[in-house]
Design a protein around this nucleic acid. Structure first.
Lengths: 341, 341
DNA sequence: AGTGCGACTGTAAACCTTTACATCATGGAT
DNA sequence: ATCCATGATGTAAAGGTTTACAGTCGCACT
């Protein structure tokens, strides 16, 4: 199967006693060939073990049936499950999935665009939150390749987007804390420049407003979404001695940092402090106490995004340029009812 | 750049005033064309924004510069970092990386092989621990495509392998526990059918033997490497009331299950029990107490495997058919010195 | 009988490269 | 003056498809 020269459409045609055009048609538009002929072709294909050469096909058709996924970090816990969804949707529609790990390196981003310009990939899924370097500055007369952003919307450009409704998710999360009697709720992970963080913060504010609670700006701490930033923010609160009864974290990684800081100081969770995360990444349920959080429908996000891209590719305009999926409240053990001490 | 017809080698040739053969040579074998001519070609390329059409190139060259990675589960915490290594090595050598998520579904495995037989991919990285369905039963006269197994060796077939030295790693881990004074050490995750589990168990036995300790077979519990299996095994030990002072787990996920069971029963770690894992997956350092474990050089494994595959592809026989990389002992807080109670 | 139509099939061009082989010029050695 | 080697370039084939267009055949209809 490998070394021995592969069968071509011509071999099949010879055996079936027809022209190569007919073989091609028998494969791609079966209704257009007579039953008897089709049977002969099918037999010949089976006998030769013929598979159509994808390169020749792509060359002729000017499409590779291949999608390039650009991600800054393949190891991101949010990434892998979205990837599963992307991959499933792609393969059911006959597309392959190419991975590009950019590490936010402009050079690598530009490099990967070669897959597009060399016709090796037909479209782009962006995980990066920005246009790849080399496209961003291109003059606007050249058309951008078909692409869809996922997880994080693309800055300053009108790229179709599929992701979770961050505002609404954070609002629900904060509402949950309020419903448990918490009034002094911290928000960990302020970072106005990041769309995701900004939206989640807004959701938090909206929930407090709705509940008639005023926000104490001292309870809103900056953070970039890393575990370390959560730890630092928590430490900072203790140093300043302005403390909440509950922490709403911009994501699970941050929540983990909060856990570590509180554990370190000898507090017992959730008795003394409640903590909420966002994302529901893999270990959220394994940590002690198990983390109450908002679950992202990651696989669904992937499927939705890929389907959007593929219909885009097939020429139809997308039904909507932005799809927001609902995140789901997952109640575990890291939030307790607030009781006056 | 996208819709407007792409520049071909012919356009470049016309502008540079040379033949297409010269353009091709200027690109691929620059030394073979005169300095002046090369300059003209380079200019023309810059002016047209030409990129060589990868499909035409692959068709002619009969190689796609593309590697297919077959993994049963893209979400596996071991996977993503190995993927990073694979991806880096591939892209530095000018190869792209195609992802196939098989979910251990034979149909999907066979489906993905089409990428190989249709010339869309030149080689295969196997994460699955077995030959993909459709290759396994093929009659031996047909040559297998070039491939390298990673993470888990391939069952019953002589496929080159790159991974961690599981025996030696487990031996070091057990040795570490012994060095901390532990004598009753449990092994959680026995599963003779899995190469990895079997090897790690052997390493464990070797360490005990070396220390002159006899193994208590009742302390060796079955498990498939999932968190749940770790939890169950631990429960089982309490039910039978045969207890160790330390748990050596076949992997970190299992260790997490042990954590959960012990926490549940109100024990304080590592004071009352020591626990060791294997793998050093992402959250090993975030769990409380932070997990002492053996770190797999995952990125390195990926790089090594990809380089092996690519040299294989370029015709050279591999220097060795199996590469075992050393795992590293990471001491955190889940193991304490054993003290007689 | 002639016309037109529908169903089926074949011919050949086009997709864009790479590269074996041929050609040509130049210059040094004989 | 001739020959040969060397270096630079061009010509054309080959790689395997898809598909516009043309052709053939049988048949119903006028």
């Amino acid at each position: 199967m490998h070394h021995r020269k592969l069968a071509t459409i011509e071999d099949v045609a010879a055996i079936a006693g027809v022209s190569i055009a007919t073989v091609s048609r028998a494969i791609n538009e079966p209704r257009k060939v007579a039953d008897e002929t089709r049977r002969r072709v099918t037999d010949a294909i089976a006998r030769t073990g013929y598979t159509t050469n994808a390169m020749a096909r792509s060359l002729r058709m000017r499409r590779a049936n291949m999608i390039l996924i650009l991600a800054p970090d393949v190891g991101d816990p949010n990434f892998s499950n979205i990837l599963v969804g992307l991959e499933i949707a792609a393969s059911t529609r006959g597309y392959g999935v190419l991975i590009g790990n950019t590490q936010n390196d402009p050079e690598r981003e530009a490099d990967y665009l070669k897959f597009i310009s060399s016709n090796q990939a037909d479209g782009l899924i962006l995980f990066t939150g920005h246009l790849p370097f080399g496209l961003a500055d291109a003059d606007p007369s050249v058309r951008l390749p078909p692409m869809v952003a996922v997880n994080e919307p693309v800055l300053n450009h009108d790229v179709p987007f599929v992701g979770v409704d961050n505002f609404e998710g954070a609002r629900i999360a904060a509402e949950h804390l309020v419903s448990q009697g918490h009034q002094r709720i911290a928000f960990i992970g302020r970072s106005p420049a990041r769309r995701i963080n900004a939206l989640r913060e807004e959701g938090y504010r909206a929930a407090l407003a709705q509940a008639g609670l005023s926000v104490d700006e001292r309870l809103i701490l900056p953070g970039d979404g890393t575990t370390e930033s959560g730890r630092q923010a928590t430490e900072h609160m203790f140093v300043r001695d302005v403390l909440p009864s509950a922490f709403l974290c911009v994501n699970d990684a941050t929540a983990l940092g909060v856990f570590m800081a509180l554990n370190n100081r000898g507090y017992v969770l959730p008795r003394q402090f409640s903590v909420m995360g966002f994302d529901d990444i893999a270990f959220a349920s394994f940590v002690t106490p198990a983390l109450t959080t908002m679950k992202q429908p990651r696989r669904k996000i992937g499927e939705e995004a890929m389907n959007m891209l593929l219909t885009l590719l097939e020429g139809e305009p997308p039904r909507q340029r932005e799809v927001f999926l609902r995140s789901e409240l997952i109640v575990r053990n890291s939030v307790s009812r607030f009781t006056e001490k």
